[in-house]
Amino acid sequence: MNKYITASLLLLGCIAYIFLSNDTGSARVFVNLITFAGVYGLAAIGINVHFGWTGLLNFGHAAFMGIGAYTTVLLIPHSLGREGVIISTGLPLPIAIIFGLIASALLGLLLGLPTLRLRGDYLAIVTIAAAEIFRLLVRDFENLTGGVYGIIQFSDSLQVYRPNFVDVISTKYDVSSAQLWVAILTWISIVLVIIILSRLQKSPWGRALRAVREDEDAVRALGKNAVWLKLQSFMLGAAIGGLSGIFLVFNYGTVQASTFVPVLTFYIWAALILGGVGSLGGPALGAIIFWVIIAGTDSISRLLFESPDGQQLAGVRFVIVGLLIMLFMIFRPSGILGKKEELLLDVK
């Protein structure tokens, strides 16, 4: 069966599932799901640039998402969690977002410079460590970041741009207008990012990244600077991660040290693998399916436990997502939209 038909059927099935399994408030569930799917999808697109295009193993995506989000939020009006220190001045949001993306890209540069000259596994290790260090720094520098209490009251900067039609729709379907607005912006961003990436993928630059993915030494022998190409790819993917982190915190309306934890990176990888490494639309599709599965596992939890607490929910999620990744690796290692011929199992 054609993979695009498979993908469309899966998507339709997912949407049907949501509306059938939640007779009350299904629109609400749908918007919630589509927002998270968008955020994770965008993040997975970033990892796809790293891994799918260039063969770089990034296991610390949460850090790139986090630094983009914190930078943006700290530059706009916000208030710090515990003492409720209100900072009422700040940059206009679009400019703050640009700084956020630059911060993510710079973190990519910082991590990439020393490691991208070395073998691929070093990058994997360094990114894992960096994400953990980032989380600890955020937790401990409470004066700046709000630590575990986090930052709140920054959403207005985004919501002031909310057009009227969003409110009209949200009243009609009884969904959160703020979340709907985040969802719309996230998916617009995904479309824009995919358009840009599809240009790049076909370009000499994209081709050069693929060559790096295949064989760095041969790239060098042909007079191309493999390290610089890897750095650029790393920074671009990091910035895309940063953008998704920004949407994530606007979706929550708050951000704290526990927002960007290692499991976030794991889930994003799961979405990428489901959707298909290397394909343009795969990551976003994978993220939708991932979130439907999460919704599904939560209903399974409700069957297993009377009223499952957060830990029980998370446990069942882990088991089922893990199983699913295993099944995909065995039966469809290229994911739903990936090309079999470009299957990636080896690493730079």
Partner: peptide, 13 residues
């Protein structure tokens, strides 16, 4: 065969 210039990020974009 492609030139370094054309493989620049902005030129490609």
């Amino acid at each position: 065969g492609s030139s370094i210039k054309n493989e620049g990020f902005l030129n490609s974009l």
